[in-house]
Structure formats: C-alpha cells, structure tokens
C-alpha cells in the first residue's frame, strides 16, 4: 500500500462542501467587493483583511484537528502549510520551493487552485489579485503562532502567469507578546 500523504488524514477528518458552491460563493463575494469599493487596489486590501480575520480563527481549527506539533523551524512550518494546511481546507497541496539563503523566504506553488474554476479576469480588473484572501489567511494564522510574515502573490495564472505562486516571507518571530489591543 502506498504510504498516506501527510495531509490526507486531516482532509478526511473535516466536513466537505460542494466545490462549486464554494467557488461560486467566493466569486460572488469578490464581485460584490468590486461593486462596493469600485477600486481594484482597495478590493485586494479588503480580501487580504478578510483572509486575515479568517486566519486568526482558522489556525486553532487546524491545530486542534490536524494532529501537528510545534514546528522547530520555519522550513517545517512552510511544509506543514503546503502539505497539510492547504489539503485540509482547500483539498489541494502546494509545493515549497525557491528558498532564500537564510531560509526566511520561500514560494508555495499551488498544485491546483479551486478558487478560480470558471474565472476569467475582465479588462477592467487587471490589477486584481483574485485569490488575495489566501495571503491574508496564511498571514493571520501564522501571526497567532508568533510569526510575523508577509504573503504576496508572485505568479497568478489569471494574470497570464504559468502557475499560482505565493511568496511567503518571515519577518520575525514575536515571542510571547501579549496582544494588547490599541483601543485608545
């Protein structure tokens, strides 16, 4: 028997939703944001913020169900995101590549991207990062486990590139910092 891939168990453990419903819901949301904000840059920002708000909650879901332990280094973190995180929540995996010399920056190349089935970007939306929500999710999730990161799209097939590639950059480990909110 072929050895099970690391994300398969996590994927099997969670409830699934019809992929088209998911894709269409996401599409309707992006479309509504474009209508509301009328500015592609602003929509990119909103998608990232929405993703961030999802990420800070989703991380606990991931940790409680994926049976992972604390990562010892950022390389391991990237691997866990690519193989288990993406599998658990999107049903796809990603490939980690292009590490920089001190292993703080890497690329996640998505093997498949269910968010963009049926999508064609019109002329008017050329600057849109349609899947920008994913950047926010990863940033939010990692922030809750003490890692400040920057996540950006490096390649996007909707914009004519040949792959979906996220660039993940570790800015710093924030150790034991209590998140006092700036309410004042």
């Amino acid at each position: 028997m072929a050895p099970a891939k690391p994300g398969d168990a996590a994927f099997a453990n969670v409830d699934h939703v019809n992929a088209e419903l998911f894709t269409l819901t996401y599409g309707a949301m992006v479309r509504q944001l474009l209508t509301d904000f009328e500015d592609v840059e602003e929509v990119n920002k909103q998608l990232d913020t929405m993703g961030y708000n999802i990420g800070i909650r989703l991380i606990d879901d991931f940790l409680s169900k994926a049976n992972v332990t604390r990562c010892s280094e950022f390389r391991e973190t990237a691997d866990v995101i690519a193989k288990i995180g993406f599998k658990m929540f999107l049903g796809v995996t990603a490939t980690v590549s292009n590490w920089n010399a001190d292993f703080t920056e890497c690329s996640l190349v998505l093997d498949d991207n269910p968010l963009v089935d049926f999508v064609e970007l019109p002329e008017t939306c050329q600057g849109l990062y349609y899947c920008n929500v994913l950047c926010g999710v990863i940033r939010g999730a990692l922030e809750m486990v003490s890692m400040r990161t920057e996540v950006k799209w490096a390649r996007d097939m909707l914009r004519g590139d040949d792959a979906y590639e996220l660039r993940l950059k570790l800015i710093e480990h924030v150790a034991e910092e209590y998140p006092y909110k700036d309410d004042d």
Binding site: R57, L58, D60, D61, S64, K65
Partner: peptide, 8 residues
C-alpha cells in the same frame, strides 16, 4: 475542538 468549532 469544540471551542474551535462553536466559538471561533
């Protein structure tokens, strides 16, 4: 797990 499901 309940906390992640029904709270978060």
């Amino acid at each position: 797990e309940l906390y992640t499901d029904y709270v978060l």
